[in-house]
Amino acid sequence: MSHVPPTPDAAAARIDVVNLTARYHGRPAVADVDLAIEPRQVTALIGPSGCGKSTLLRCMNGLHLTVPGASVTGQVLLDDADIYAKDSNPVEIRHRVGMVFQRPTPFPTMSVRDNVLAGLQLGRRLGRGAPHDEIAERALTKAGLWHEVKDRLKAPGASLSGGQQQRLCIARALAVEPEVLLMDEPCAHLDPISTLTIEDLIREIKETYTVVIVTHNMQQAARVADTTAFLTMSAVGDPGRLVEVGPTERIFSSPRRQTTEDYISGKIG
């Protein structure tokens, strides 16, 4: 199997979440969500802690179902094909829909270079003759990390700074050339400079990818997202629900729902 780089336009899929309810041990964490994620746009998920943003995000690549006791009903359509259909291959789905987590998670036994290539090598998606070094360089360049690490590709991935580690994880996710990139509070543990670097990066990669980002930082949503979806739950213990979704500007300037306005003006959450 040889590595065929897809044309840039081939990437970027759309996701349609249809009537989705996600449960842990039978208890819904997020319920009845209908949400369209447009390709080559950044969609932000905002809402108070515990409203199910991470759960919803993890439903979009099927990672939710790897948690013991977790289940879903409803559909997540990736380019019109339900990822929860019986004949869909979860490994293939996770390959097409990449993810970056809140905490940087470089693989501790691997060097910077091997971290970037991990998805391709472990997924056996690279032929023997594939240009490993070029692929690693391309991914690191896209993640804005190449110049900082080009002299320490053999150093352990965990030896980088927190912000560099997070960009390493982004490079690692981009190296497998996914169609969608899910980001769960990717800047939560980073300093303001690293945060801005990653925001620039998000604006850049949305040219070729579909990006969904969970954030607690309203300014961040306003800065990077084209579309913003607000979720909340009516009481602690109740499942989160989608309240409102629309162009980011409109959500922040003239929200249609009172709860949205209360949340973005800092009255709740």
Binding site: N61, L63, T66, V91, E92, R94, H95, R96, G98, M99, F101, T105, F107, A118, G119, L122, G123, R125, C169, R172, A173, V176, P178
Partner: peptide
Amino acid sequence: EASLALGVS
């Protein structure tokens, strides 16, 4: 999860 999310079995 980071490994699974890369499409690794």
